[in-house]
Amino acid sequence: METLTETNDKVTYTIELLICLIMFSVFVTLPLYSTKYIMGLITISLISSICAMSYNLLLGYAGLLSFGHIVGWGVGAYTVGILAGKGITVNFFLIIGVTIFVTIIISAVFAFLALRTQGIYFALITLALAELCHAVTLKWSRFTGGENGLTGIDRPWLVGDKAFYYLVLISFIISFLLIRSIISSWFGKTLVGIRENDFRMGMLGYNTWIFKYLAYIISAIFASIAGLLSCFYIGIASPADFNFVTSGSFLLMVLIGGRATLIGPIIGSFFVVFATHYLSAYTNEWMLILGVIFVLVVMFARKGIGGYLLVWKNKIQQELHKQ
């Protein structure tokens, strides 16, 4: 996992930059050579990556297991659903603004309630609070469309798939850069310290509560942007956007991809999205397979793909240095 020390030397840094540039060009030119189907999957993967990266901020970097991350996603989806779906406004930026505003308020309240506890208590309370939101969307039908949710939502500016793909790509890049700067800032380092020994951080003089509180809210904001994009993409906001089993898929992305690494959740997202789609096309047992992978990763491969890549990278660096 990434810790606090700069482990990249100049060579590695250049290589990483090169890889980023290559990936960037691949993604930017994608619509030119990709099928619609693949582009769609990649769109979903990029959206999920935003949600997974911010989930990782909480789980991987701050060490807080929360089952309530889905709340941010759901708020994003339903804000779009209510504002755009009910014809209140289609101004994209206004919708984003409202989404972020509502997310901050709700996550501020939830974080306040949940952070009065820690560990398992915390995880379970976040689960219960997420379920509260789920119940609200189911029962408050007049407002939220009940079980069927809200439908008929158009893309912003009524753009087609290709243009929407670029919208998602831009959002992804912005989110990536923002989260990266958070992680490499003092705030991020403090979160790592809290993850490693919350008690001692308090004894060193840190107000650990405020750090956790802000981390919760910040990660919720990114999740809400992801949910917002998702709702625009598929045109529906439904109670499944608050379902804790849905939140499980984001958890899986972080776990498989690698906790406490920056690119881990991205890898995990692509893996889970593609695996789910192809698996469910070929077999009915895809849930079983995902569940087994989940369990195996937790038991035996806790570092995740990203974690192993990091170890591998460090080993290579050490070898090169020896020469």
Partner: peptide, 8 residues
């Protein structure tokens, strides 16, 4: 996490 995975 492990028990969560078992749900699936």
């Amino acid at each position: 996490l492990v028990t969560f995975g078992l749900i699936y």
